[in-house]
Design a protein around this nucleic acid. Structure first.
Lengths: 212, 212
DNA sequence: TAAAATGTACGAACTGGTACGTATGTCAAG
DNA sequence: CTTGACATACGTACCAGTTCGTACATTTTA
């Protein structure tokens, strides 16, 4: 048994799973669910394909885990904002900037959501975990709008979900459609000056809408 | 040769190609490029898989043809608008409504664009045809904005491409992210009352932004 | 010693693409 | 107006490579 190399394997389930998820996130967000290859993921992992099936059962199981992990990461980020002690308009600007910066910084997440939409959100529907996460955003927005209206800074009675959609739409689209948009209009949406301009723009538009 | 059935085959290249493209559009927009199956397309066609390769060379060739066909259809629609005799604000509202209604009526197109973005717009880059189409929209918007500013209805000097993006983002997102958004917030974005509200909302927001 | 974690090798089904053969249309020559 | 020859249009059956998933064996850990 002299051959038995000095590989010194250590069992570390958590690290193994996390490692798989990291690699899988990249694979799926780049190639989609059908386009992503389990073998390709396994190869770039510290471990083997066997482990993928050991922990996640199937390709779809892995994909779902990747999706959940991505959503969980945002929740943590969003929940840390302390907006109730800010003036309504300022609070909204901070929230918008946060969403904007998040999408800009996490194209992987944006792509996964796009992919999930192509599949009619079939996987998300099966996961209650994900659904619960975004509810808090709506509550936050609702609070800001109420304060704004009662303080007469906002004149329009708007639906919180609509406002959230307006914000998401702009922030998301910039990232999700970066390539086709950039290709058609020869404009690089990830240029610093463009990013700055757009960040202000979406905030101005939303607040302008609420004050109209 | 009494067996030789009454199939009465007619050679009709144009109809055959169009038929393939129709079916392929549905297949690719539903399952993506990697997820779409050539065999599945062939089955639902009046013709056979052989013909797909005869006319389009490869799966990717077929996909590109589908993409080009979708873009060509919009151009025709957009080009028919006569906006120069309308007041700037009214012209913009008409343009926004048209974009809104188009995306709402053509989820296939929206999905194909999403898919193309997942592939970094790699196929679109190889097709000059597509790029040329959307330039006219920007010229239209630029004209409206100029007239609006000189007539003092719009106070803000805005970039036409930015405005186009703002409009596209909202109209596109409503359709592209319909499923994840609907799943999280239990809201059906294709409900008539919701559609009406959103159509007005995006127009108000854009115009409000230009007047701020 | 048993359960959890991991590695290796392999198989069965799927899937893009093609080889081969047949039918249809066209057009010029008879 | 018929014939025949050639190009285009089409159908069937099949192949070869890929890809998800697993059987089996082994090591680590408690």
């Amino acid at each position: 048994m002299a051959i038995k190399a000095e590989n010194g394997r250590k069992n570390d389930p958590q690290r193994t799973q996390e490692n798989i998820l990291e690699v899988a996130t990249e694979e799926f967000s780049t190639h989609g669910l059908a386009g992503g290859r389990v073998d390709a993921i396994a190869e770039r992992t510290r471990t083997s394909k066997r482990m993928i099936y050991y922990y996640f059962g199937s390709k779809e199981g892995l994909y779902l885990a990747v999706l959940e992990r991505s959503y969980r990461k945002i929740r943590t980020l969003e929940a840390d904002l302390q907006l109730s002690n800010l003036e309504p308009e300022e609070a909204l600007r901070v929230l918008i900037s946060t969403t904007f910066d998040h999408d800009e910084a996490h194209p992987d997440f944006v792509r996964l959501v796009s992919i999930e939409n192509i599949h009619h959100a079939a996987h998300m529907l099966r996961s209650e975990a994900i659904r619960d996460l975004n509810v808090s955003v709506i509550e936050t927005i609702a609070g800001i709008l109420e304060r704004g209206v009662s303080q007469r800074v906002f004149t329009r009675q708007a639906d919180p979900i609509d406002i959230h959609m307006m914000i998401s739409a702009f922030c998301f689209f910039r990232v999700s459609n970066r390539y086709t948009f950039g290709s058609i209009f020869r404009r690089d949406l990830s240029e610093p000056t463009t990013i700055e301009r757009h960040r202000t723009m979406i905030a101005d538009a939303v607040i302008g809408y609420l004050k109209a």
